[in-house]
Design a protein around this nucleic acid. Structure first.
Lengths: 243, 243
DNA sequence: TTCGATGCTGTTGTGTACAACATAAGAAAA
DNA sequence: TTTTCTTATGTTGTACACAACAGCATCGAA
């Protein structure tokens, strides 16, 4: 809800070094690209575009007031991230993830979550600690009034907060890619589960992680995260909500 | 030298399911895309296009007998993989990797190499074992006649062979991405090192891995690989060939 | 001599028309 | 009725012309 839409992709952020301009006054073309990229990725992982949806390049071009060309550039990136698939004569389809691949991604995400505490962990700043407190507060609020969409957004924001705990940039990129590949599948399954219970568990996860972050134990936070990813997957599997 | 150029990217391979055609008779547009993508990626990581090189879309279009449009699609993918960077008014430049990021990628690659033995390890088939024997033979030959380019190619082929030891597709993708990000930097540094010694060490690595693979101990092979990645990085750092 | 402006050149970014392609509907034949 | 061929329609892929932009050289003025 907050820094998601405006957040720039790391892969591009670590560039953008114009000759001598203001650093914020980037090309404006790049800025627009990032904007549309974030918007579409958000729609995909918030299930505004459920798996199987056919996106029309022309419709998107009209929506953003540009031609198909820059739209195609964005769609190409999303395709390279595995979120879309374009086939000539058919359309650009939002990908789905079969159960097998889903399990593999979750396994890998567990390991990467643990690595956050091992590879270049960064001592949490006061601002970071405050951020986790905010997330915890939002978690409490969510328990009071459960809502799938807010749940998903809080999940996304927690992920980005956790990425601040490591300075290993490649680890961030990889983790983000895998996260966005599975986030929508997880969200889709939530509707088949006990929302109140899931929200409660998630709120406890945030509280535990916040505790670890507050005392500066990034490694502990990483292990907590890992265990919760693991348990989340087990619960998902038990409900057999995956297809 | 063998299956590299013709190898299709996993991200695309796990698609390509036309209605009822021959399965090999894919779009031809996709095929061409894959072909050019592999060629350019090969040139980048074999230092035919050293870091800093400015690629011309028009020149590439002329070379492949097509227009700029499909070339731009390929360049877009390479940019999303972190191998290129396009800026308006300047050109498309082959990226370089600064020493800090290089170390981070190596750290991560070490962990991922270990994961190959943990996540969905697959018992080596007879064909796989034979493949490793071939690699070992090429290693022996390389020791007899050291050559940087053959060294690089054998390195690439060993990497792809190792990827056959896990069925975890996301792990493969991620590892491949990181490998290609650092392969050219490693190759660039080789020229500042003792080629004969590096080749000898590498040949021993292949032999060790082959031994582990032959008895079906994928986990051991993964640990061997991990340790060699680690040692390779230490040697690279000692020569301070990185800038 | 030095500094600055200004045009020149080459690059990527964008818009647009058309080609290639897949799908479904419909008509015609068995 | 069923099957098959044809055609209509909508999609992505490609080519090409032009706009936007950055860098450099050249010229001019202080």
């Amino acid at each position: 809800m907050q820094d998601h839409e405006t957040k720039v992709d790391e892969a591009m952020a670590r560039s953008a070094k114009p000759t001598g301009t203001d650093e914020t006054q980037v090309n404006a073309a790049r800025e627009r690209f990032q904007r549309i990229y974030s918007i579409l990725r958000g729609r995909i992982c918030m299930l505004d575009y459920p798996p199987g949806t056919r996106l029309s390049e022309e419709a998107l071009a009209a929506e953003f007031g540009i031609s198909r060309t820059p739209v195609r550039r964005v769609l190409g990136w999303l395709e390279s991230q595995g979120l879309l698939r374009s086939v000539q004569g058919v359309g650009t389809i939002v990908t789905d993830v079969e159960i097998g691949a889903f399990a593999q991604v979750y396994q890998l995400r567990m390991e990467l979550a643990e690595l956050v505490g091992k590879l270049s962990p960064v001592p949490p700043s006061q601002e970071t600690i405050r951020l986790f407190h905010e997330l915890e507060a939002r978690g409490v609020e969510l328990v009071a009034r459960p809502d799938p969409r807010n749940f998903a957004q809080l999940n996304i924001d927690l992920f980005h907060a956790l990425m601040r705990l490591t300075e290993n940039e490649p680890l961030r990129e990889i983790s983000e890619r895998l996260y966005y590949q599975t986030a929508r599948i997880w969200l889709k399954s939530i509707s088949h589960m006990d929302l109140a219970e899931e929200v409660a568990v998630f709120a406890r996860e945030i509280a535990e992680i916040r505790t670890a972050v507050e005392i500066g134990d990034v490694s502990a936070a990483a292990y907590i995260r890992r265990s919760h990813i693991s348990m989340s997957f087990v619960r998902l599997s038990n409900t057999s909500a995956l297809r």
